[in-house]
Amino acid sequence: MEDKNIQSQINALDKKLDLILGYVNQQRLNATVVEDLVSDLGIIGKDMYDSTVVELDKRQIEIDPSELTDLAVTFLRNIGNIKLVMNTLEMAVDLSKEVGPIANEVIIDFTKQLNTFEQKGYFAFFKELGPIMDNIVTGFKPEDLRELADSIVSILSIIKEMTQPEVLGTMENAIKAFNSMETESVPSYSIWRVLKEMNSPEMKKALGYGITFMKNVSKDVTIKNEKQ
């Protein structure tokens, strides 16, 4: 019985020793891998350093080690500022992600509105304004524009008066009457016929309009001359 217990303990010790040897072997393999990696990185770093030195020498660039030291110190001293900039950049990226869909909607709505303007003919209308502007520029001198600027108030006042309903109605009637006339078949009037037509109610009313108009114009001219 004691021999069996001793043999069991020996077998347990053998298993534990195998585990320990396996662990030691694994650690040795890991150390070998790390050593190989460090060796490879050393070779790569040396190659990069040599290549950098060659390129700097080709381009005749000299580096002062003290400047590199100052750069490293400056970088370390401004780690907080760099972190602040990175945080700001991160917030800007997040904001752009949120604003992006809104901007897309605005662009889509703006494009639709432009399409609506195009269908209504706005762009074609403004395109046709180009020749009109060319004719105005070529047809008027700078002096004419200065005179127009001096008289613009009077011109606008006249236009304002012309847009009164009574004036527009009179102008519309005059245009209708002119369009209804057959200019090629206008009859000839003798003096006697003119005198006879002047006795008609229409001619009397027309003469009344004409005389009243001329009297009012003469009155305004007289008032302006007196003011001067």
Score class of each variant (00 low, 15 high):
E2P: 06
D3S: 10
D3R: 07
K4C: 08
K4L: 10
I10G: 02
N11K: 12
A12H: 11
L13C: 14
L13F: 11
K15T: 11
L17G: 01
L17M: 06
Y23Q: 08
Y23W: 05
V24L: 13
V24S: 13
Q26C: 09
A31S: 13
T32R: 15
T32G: 13
D36L: 12
V38W: 07
I43W: 15
K46D: 10
K46S: 12
K46C: 09
D47N: 15
M48I: 15
S51A: 11
V53S: 04
D57W: 09
K58P: 07
Q60R: 14
Q60C: 09
I61Y: 00
E62D: 06
S66P: 04
D70V: 08
T74W: 15
T74P: 11
I82T: 13
I82P: 04
L84S: 13
N87I: 15
T88I: 15
T88Q: 15
L89C: 11
L89R: 06
E90H: 12
V93C: 09
S96T: 02
E98I: 00
E98W: 01
E98F: 01
V99C: 10
I102M: 11
A103H: 13
V106F: 12
I107K: 15
T111S: 15
L114K: 15
T116W: 01
K120G: 00
K120N: 07
G121F: 01
A124Y: 05
F125Q: 03
F126E: 14
E128W: 11
G130P: 14
G130Y: 11
T138R: 12
F140P: 04
P142M: 06
E143F: 06
D150G: 08
V153Q: 05
V153P: 10
K160G: 14
P165V: 09
E166W: 03
V167A: 07
L168M: 04
M171N: 02
K176N: 06
E184S: 09
S185L: 04
S185C: 05
P187M: 04
P187Q: 03
S188L: 08
Y189S: 11
S190C: 01
S190Y: 06
S190N: 02
E197W: 05
E197C: 00
M198Y: 10
E202H: 07
E202Y: 03
G208Y: 04
Y209G: 01
G210R: 07
I211H: 00
K215S: 01
K215R: 13
S218W: 03
K219E: 08
I223D: 09
I223V: 11
I223K: 12
Q228K: 00
Q228T: 02
